[in-house]
């Protein structure tokens, strides 16, 4: 992969990588750093990407996911032990608009549930692709995604009622 290939890849995928990192960390500066590091890795070690093993975007998102995980661990915000948790921490909704409230609810999910939900809903990845990115089996992806969605259905229900009443 040449420098110009990396530039094409940057134009195609940097937005998706930034948005995933932003949603995962909740920090614009961390998302910038992660996006930068993903493409610096591609410039430095282009051999790390093997097209025979899959497409470029899942590979780049996988790198971003690992960097985001390291960032969250450093910030003590990676709650792996809560993977089985069915009820997310209650998110503070009062005084927030709809966008912020949905963001707060997703951010309050355990990190392992959150990453799977972000990859499925916002990234548009298939269960197989998510399994490869997160390095777990497809059954575990399904279970995490189900738990994440169940959590959100409950935490966001009061907000839906307010919105549908025009409140």
């Amino acid at each position: 992969m040449t420098d110009s290939d990396v530039r094409i890849a940057f134009n195609e995928h940097s937005g998706a990588i930034y948005r995933f990192s932003w949603r995962m960390t909740g920090s614009p500066s961390a998302a910038e750093d992660i996006t930068q590091d993903v493409f610096l890795l591609l410039l430095r070690r282009p051999d790390q990407f093997d097209p025979r093993r899959g497409q470029l975007r899942p590979f780049l998102i996988g790198v971003a996911r690992n960097l985001a995980r390291k960032w969250l661990l450093r910030e003590s915000r990676w709650n792996e032990l809560d993977d089985e948790q069915l009820v997310a921490e209650p998110a503070e909704m009062e005084g927030r608009d709809l966008t912020e409230s949905v963001g707060a609810a997703v951010s309050s999910l355990p990190a392992t549930q959150r990453e799977v939900l972000l990859l499925a809903h916002y990234g548009g990845f298939s269960l197989d692709e998510i399994a490869r990115i997160v390095n777990i089996d497809v059954g575990a992806v399904k279970a995490r995604l189900h738990r994440a969605r169940q959590n959100l259905k409950r935490t966001l229900a009061p907000l839906w009622l307010c919105e549908s009443r025009g409140g």
Binding site: Q36, V102, W160, L161
Partner: peptide, 28 residues
Amino acid sequence: KSLNDEQLDRMLDCWVAPPAPHSIESRV
């Protein structure tokens, strides 16, 4: 109360992420 799948998807769509800053490109 709990949302159905369609309602949840519609709510999740409300959370729009900002575009990536141009500064990243010059940094890379």
